[in-house]
Amino acid sequence: AFSSEQLARLKREFNENRYLTERRRQQLSSELGLNEAQIKIWFQNKRA
């Protein structure tokens, strides 16, 4: 489960760009304390 802070950040990123570069995913992973797979799957689900 994502914290409300993490979700807000993911939604902001998604609004700016529906697709993440690998580098951006790595940055978000480290900033949010999530693993890259969690972020990747969140974006895939959000696009679906």
Rank of each mutant, 00 (worst) to 15 (best):
N17V: 04
S29Q: 05
S30P: 01
A48Y: 08
R47M: 13
R23V: 12
N35R: 08
R47A: 11
F14S: 02
E13K: 02
R25M: 15
E31L: 06
I41D: 13
N35L: 10
L34W: 02
E31A: 06
R12G: 05
W42V: 02
N15H: 10
Y19N: 08
Q26F: 08
I41W: 14
A8Y: 05
L7I: 11
L34S: 02
R47G: 06
N17T: 06
S30H: 13
R25F: 11
L28D: 00
S30I: 14
R12W: 10
L32Y: 02
N17H: 09
A48W: 08
L28K: 01
G33P: 01
A8M: 09
Q38F: 11
A1F: 12
E16A: 09
F14L: 03
G33F: 04
S29F: 03
N45L: 13
T21C: 07
L28M: 04
E16P: 01
L10N: 00
Q26L: 12
E13C: 05
Q6S: 04
L28N: 00
W42S: 00
R12K: 14
G33A: 05
A1Y: 13
R47D: 07
Q38E: 12
S30V: 14
E36Q: 07
E5V: 08
I39S: 00
E22L: 11
L10K: 00
I39N: 01
Y19F: 13
L32I: 08
I41S: 11
E5G: 07
N15G: 08
Q38V: 14
E36V: 10
E22P: 15
L34I: 12
E22W: 09
S3A: 04
L7W: 03
L20E: 04
N17G: 05
G33V: 03
E13D: 03
K40Q: 15
R12A: 14
L10D: 01
I39F: 02
N15E: 15
F43L: 02
N15M: 12
Q44H: 10
L10S: 00
K46N: 11
L10P: 00
I41L: 12
Q26N: 07
L7C: 12
S30N: 12
L28V: 03
Q6N: 05
E31D: 08
T21Y: 03
L20M: 06
Q38T: 10
R9G: 07
R23Q: 14
Q6P: 01
L7D: 05
W42T: 00
L20P: 15
F2H: 03
F2S: 02
F14W: 11
N15F: 09
R12P: 00
I41K: 12
L7P: 00
R25Q: 12
S29K: 03
Q27E: 13
F43K: 00
N17A: 04
I39T: 01
Q6L: 05
E22N: 13
E5A: 12
S4R: 11
A8H: 07
I39H: 00
R47F: 10
E36A: 09
R18M: 11
N17I: 04
A8W: 05
L20N: 02
S30Y: 14
N45Q: 13
A48H: 11
R9W: 05
K46P: 04
N45R: 11
Q6F: 02
E31N: 03
L20D: 11
A8V: 07
Q27H: 07
N17E: 04
N17F: 06
I41M: 13
R12H: 11
S3H: 03
F2R: 01
R25H: 05
E13G: 01
R24G: 05
E22G: 10
S30L: 15
R18V: 06
L10C: 03
A48Q: 11
A37E: 15
L32M: 07
N15I: 09
L20R: 00
F2G: 02
Q44M: 09
F43W: 15
S4N: 12
S4A: 14
Q6A: 07
A48N: 11
K46D: 03
R24Q: 09
A37C: 14
R18Q: 13
E16F: 08
A48K: 14
L28R: 01
E36F: 05
L34D: 00
L10I: 02
N35T: 15
S4F: 11
S4Y: 11
Q38H: 07
Y19I: 12
A8S: 08
R9T: 07
L32F: 03
A1I: 12
S3Q: 04
R47L: 15
S30W: 12
Q27L: 12
R24C: 05
S29N: 01
Q6I: 11
F43P: 01
R25I: 15
Q38Y: 08
E36I: 08
E22T: 14
F14A: 03
S29H: 03
E31W: 04
E31Q: 06
A1M: 13
Q26P: 01
L10Y: 01
R9E: 06
S4T: 12
E13M: 05
K46H: 13
T21H: 04
A48F: 09
L7N: 05
N35V: 06
N17R: 07
R24V: 08
A1C: 13
R23Y: 12
L34F: 02
R18Y: 06
Q38K: 06
K11P: 01
K11F: 13
L34R: 01
E31H: 03
R47Y: 08
S30A: 14
R12M: 11
E13S: 05
T21E: 04
K40E: 15
K46I: 08
E5I: 07
E36H: 05
S4L: 12
A37N: 13
F43D: 01
A1T: 13
R23D: 13
T21L: 03
R9L: 06
R18G: 07
F43I: 02
G33C: 07
A8K: 09
Y19C: 10
E13P: 01
F14D: 01
Q26Y: 08
E16V: 08
I41T: 10
Y19M: 07
R23H: 13
E13I: 06
Q26H: 09
A48I: 10
E36L: 05
E5C: 09
R12S: 10
E22S: 13
F43M: 03
A1G: 13
I39Q: 01
I41F: 10
W42A: 02
S3N: 10
K46L: 09
G33S: 06
K46V: 09
K46E: 15
R25T: 15
R23W: 09
K40N: 14
N45G: 07
S4I: 12
R25S: 15
E36M: 06
K11L: 15
E36K: 05
Q38W: 11
N45K: 11
L28I: 07
A1V: 12
Q26W: 07
A8E: 14
F43E: 02
Q27D: 08
R24N: 04
I41Q: 15
N35A: 14
K40W: 13
L28Y: 00
N15A: 14
G33T: 04
A37D: 15
A48S: 09
L7M: 07
K11A: 14
L10A: 01
K11S: 14
S4W: 09
